[in-house]
Amino acid sequence: MSAPGIAIETKPLVPSGLLAVAIFVASEAIFFAALISAFVVLRAQALDWPPFDQPRLPVLVTGINTAILLLSGCTIHGALRSVRASGARLTGWLAATAVLGALFLAIQGYEWVRLVGFGLTTSSSLYGATFYALVGAHGVHVLAALVVVLVVAVRGYRGRYGAAEHTGVAMCHLYWLFVVAVWPVLYALVYLR
């Protein structure tokens, strides 16, 4: 029996690539939740936090840096909106995102070097250990997401995406937003407490 329409490919509700990133982001979120709960437990058990002989964290500079990262969340959203509309300014938005992300990493790195100079290291105290583990884990994620943004930017420049097909941009957008969204939580817990 031949029914018409058998060979028609059904279009899925969420494209496979985006679904995969969404699942990945969910498991990443649980990874950060575990790191944060470890931090909270260790801090709750500590006698003094931060220890009196350890340097204080740069609250103000990192606050400004937080704003920079949040701004990059807006630019990546601009990228997705532009590709949905026409795709004309996609590369510009992605480049702006990459610059902001790189700036965030540079400032973080500069502050790390200063903190190490002041005597805050992984082995100087549990305070230092948790700081570098949490902030470092986030930094690695920003770096990875930055590479993804650059790859998508190059592909966008070559005209790979359009209003009809832009799953790659949507995947990159979702992951970058996740990396941005985790940071304020870490900033509030680790720096502001």
Partner: peptide
């Protein structure tokens, strides 16, 4: 890296 997350001596 010499951290002490699980070492009671280091807190």
């Amino acid at each position: 890296a010499g951290t002490g997350f699980y070492a009671p001596a280091a807190g």
